[in-house]
Design a protein around this nucleic acid. Structure first.
Length: 418
RNA sequence: CGGGCUGUAGCGCAGUUGGCUAGCGCGCCACGUUCGGGACGUGGAGGCCGCGGGUUCAAGUCCCGCCAGCCCGACCA
């Protein structure tokens, strides 16, 4: 993609009221556009990062046998009344139809997935089964805040699993927990697993996954050496204690909840009257667990944990592009022709080799502007073609997180980058 | 939802005790000069001063109401 034609240009100034890194850099860089409080459009650059997150989520969940589906965002009022949540969930958006009936604008999908899966489950041979979707969720939050970290409309991956026995549920729960850690790791986040009460959601156990960052709204006691953490509300440990898991010193930190998992028991399967016949021919109610990851929030959490004062430093797997190719212009027409020739050649060859390249081909942008934008947009690798680099018959290569660039000969670029 | 702050050009802002044609920087358009960390000159375009009502000879400025955005708190199935 050429930067010259990109929808969503990087800006020299950040929005005056952006107080978190994700709000500041995502808006300033043209990754997203704010439409309303807590509601964003995802522009080409931001959407690429979001798509990369979703790709990782799909790969890891497919790998643990979950099947992707897509359920409706408009949900049945009757089903929400069946679970008793129509009048008790105050973040529920209720949508009136011109016919007078009402719908729920989905904040979550137990009310859809439970009857859906129930219609296909009759025997223990149909279990276990796990389905997930990546979808826009709607929650009528009283206060949206912190950029894309807490919105009224946001992307979420929700996974639901159904089991014949508690042992099987716990087995799968652990499998997904490990899959979650892999997902977050690939996104560049060493997530902490916070033991939490299920709240009113479930009487069973639950776990939250947190990214440690000052922008977080949860206070947790966490071990920086392993994944152990506890929410201060229910903590039995305190800062300074030794980690019960690995012995390292515990610290008091802020976290953003990027995922959560619940053992729902029969809370939903019972009210929707799900039943299967077991090996002995007896009717049983299946057990259910649910697993969520806020995909748009995860992009925001990545920015919070991967930036410096100049901009974002994208982890490789979710960077919108691998390579930010910068062309500096020369007043010497012969040199200029050579610069353009080398740049366009690299742009073509690098992509042919499988790299995702954004090319700052702007003829009217100054050097400082181009370099500042490269830092702001934060692609992992910057390749710069200029009169200076060509004097040494090469290009300048610099990783976003490094300070110094180094020259790579023109004949060695493709090999160097693999 | 309670409290606070803020709404003036795409972005960031100034605009005095009410007073003349509402300004500045960036960005945008044209031309020229530049070209290694956000260059410069000249010329130009772009305003429901958040919205509505009121006070006044006169309102961006004062008053009332509303809306929106941000922050703190509460809330977060």
């Amino acid at each position: 993609m050429k930067l010259s034609g990109l929808l969503g240009k990087p800006s020299k100034t950040a929005p005056h009221d952006a107080d978190t890194a994700n709000a500041k850099f995502l808006l300033q860089g043209g990754f997203v556009r704010q439409e309303m409080a807590g509601i964003y459009s995802w522009l080409p650059l931001g959407l690429r990062a979001l798509n990369n997150v979703q790709k990782i989520v799909r790969e890891e969940l497919d790998a643990v046998g979950a099947q992707e589906v897509l359920m409706p965002a408009l949900e049945s009022k009757e089903n929400w009344e069946t679970t008793g949540r129509w009048d008790t969930v105050d973040v529920l958006f209720k949508v009136p139809s011109q016919t007078g009936r009402e719908y729920a604008l989905g904040p979550t999908h137990e009310e859809v997935v439970t009857p859906l899966v129930g219609s296909f489950v009759n025997s223990y041979k149909d279990l276990p089964v796990a389905v997930y979707q990546i979808q826009t969720k709607f929650r009528d939050e009283l206060r949206a805040k912190s950029g894309v970290l807490r919105g009224r409309e946001f992307g979420m991956k929700d996974l639901y699993s159904f089991h014949a026995t508690q042992e099987d549920l716990e087995r799968y729960y652990e499998i997904v927990k490990q899959a979650y850690l892999r997902i977050f790791k690939r996104c560049g986040i060493d997530a902490k697993i916070v033991e939490a009460s299920g709240g009113s959601f479930t009487k069973k156990f639950s776990h939250e996954f947190h990214a440690i960052t000052q922008a977080g709204e949860d206070d947790i006691i966490a071990c920086m050496a392993c994944t152990f953490a506890q929410n201060t509300e229910i903590a039995t440990v305190k800062a300074g204690d030794s980690c019960p898991a690995c012995g390292a010193e515990l610290k008091s930190v802020k976290g953003v909840e990027i995922g959560n998992i619940f053992d729902l028991g029969t809370k939903f399967t019972q009210v929707f009257k799900l039943a299967f016949t077991d090996e002995k021919g007896e009717r049983q109610t299946p057990l259910m667990a649910c697993f969520g990851i806020g995909t748009t929030r995860l992009v925001g959490a990545v920015v919070e944990t991967h930036h410096d004062e100049r901009g974002i430093i994208w982890p490789k797997e979710i960077a919108p592009f691998d390579i930010h190719l910068v062309t500096l212009h020369s007043k010497d027409q012969t040199v200029q022709d050579r610069i353009v020739e080398v740049s366009s050649g690299l742009y073509r060859d690098l992509q042919a080799q499988g790299h995702k390249v954004v090319w700052d081909d702007r003829a009217d942008a100054s050097v400082g502007e181009k370099l500042a934008d490269a830092d702001l947009l934060g692609m992992p690798l910057r390749i710069l073609v200029s009169a200076k680099s060509l004097e040494r018959n090469g290009v300048e290569v610099k990783a976003r997180h490094e300070v110094e660039a180094h020259i790579v000969g023109l004949d060695g670029v493709m090999e160097e980058l693999g």
